[in-house]
């Protein structure tokens, strides 16, 4: 009896929590359950969720990527500066940002896979390196339209309307970043679940040595996981710049924590017990609802980190308690 109850909670607990939080805020905050606010929530979580998809990749191969927040920061200012300072066309801007993300992923993979530094330590170092590169590149300033440059002139370019549309526009009444997110969730879900590529990533995460002895090229597959992590972080950075209409300093710093929390909440969605992209999506939804609702309840923003931290602890507790329980039986 107790066992079935626990299993039920493990399987549906995360979704029940989301439902409960949703009901609570709808009851406590009159404006909460409206179409506008709900799309707002989805819009605000879309960036976290996209970054979290990247984190999902690294966790699937039993790795970790702490550098995603810094990558978001760097690609945000990179995108903005390419338009504002150098007046580059949109295609080049987006390509350059994605390339930067992929290169960071390659570098992470080199340190972890080739040099053999433990993933947490390698990406922790990279977190600071990338953050420093970002600040050095912008000399500590945020990048915005017509900003004054150090030589006294004004910046020549602006963030183009078509670029801003990516972050602020709507299509069929749905915010564009939400559409992008949904496409990515579906696409990555299919990739991970139904392709050879996805299967190989999962098997490496399950048992790396057995995967190697089964003929899976573990080094290149793990490299791909980190490249995907960097790519999704870069995409998050692009959308961030488009959403706020400027390249803010350290824009991605809070995203690391939120995306990691989203992935771990996702472990327990429908009892998956491992990183999965649908779970990650719901994890991001939970965090988005909490932050939105608490804002409306006038909780001061500086207390948000407490909530985020507690959500992560709860998600980790559920995951690891389940692992321990499984080991004992």
């Amino acid at each position: 009896m107790k066992q079935t109850a626990l299993n039920f909670l493990y399987k549906y607990g995360a979704l029940l929590v989301i439902l409960f939080v949703l009901l609570y805020f709808s009851y406590a905050v009159p404006y909460f359950f409206t179409y506008d606010n709900l799309t707002d929530i989805l819009r605000s979580i879309s960036i976290v969720a996209i970054v979290a998809i990247g984190v999902t990749f690294s966790l699937i191969v039993d790795g970790f990527d702490l550098s995603v927040g810094s990558t978001v920061s760097l690609t945000t200012v990179l995108t903005a500066s390419l338009m504002v300072w150098y007046e580059q066309p949109l295609a080049i801007v987006i390509f350059a940002a994605l390339l930067a993300g992929a290169m960071i992923g390659l570098l992470n993979a080199f340190l972890i896979v080739k040099v053999g530094i433990p993933d947490l330590l390698a990406t922790l170092s990279m977190l600071y390196v990338i953050g420093g590169v970002q600040k050095t590149y912008t000399q500590g300033y945020s990048v915005y339209n017509k900003m004054p440059l150090p030589d006294g002139t004004t910046a020549p370019g602006v963030l183009s309307p078509s670029f801003l549309w990516l972050g602020q526009g709507k299509l069929f009444g749905v915010p564009v970043p939400v559409l992008i997110l949904i496409l990515l969730v579906v696409g990555v879900h299919l990739l991970l679940k139904y392709t050879r590529f996805g299967r190989m990533l999962h098997m490496i995460g399950s048992n790396q040595e057995a995967a190697r002895l089964s003929g899976i090229p573990i080094y290149s597959m793990r490299t791909w996981a980190y490249v995907f992590s960097g790519l999704f972080a870069a995409l998050g950075g692009i959308l961030f710049a488009a959403r706020v209409g400027s390249g803010q300093m350290d824009a991605g710093a809070p995203l690391l924590m939120e995306s990691v929390a989203a992935v771990f909440v996702g472990y327990s969605v429908l009892g998956a017990g491992k990183p999965n992209v649908i779970g990650t999506f719901f994890g991001a939804v939970l965090i988005g609802i909490l932050l939105n609702g608490l804002t409306m309840l006038n909780l001061p923003y500086y207390a948000f980190d407490i909530v985020k931290g507690l959500v992560l602890i709860l998600a980790l507790a559920v995951t690891y308690l389940h692992v321990r329980r499984k080991k004992r039986t």
Partner: peptide
């Protein structure tokens, strides 16, 4: 357990790994 099996995966996923191609 250490080198041959993927203990958390299904029988199916274990059996079909070498012939995925």
């Amino acid at each position: 357990r250490g080198e041959g099996l993927f203990v958390n995966e299904s029988i199916r996923a274990n059996l079909t790994l070498p012939i995925l191609k």
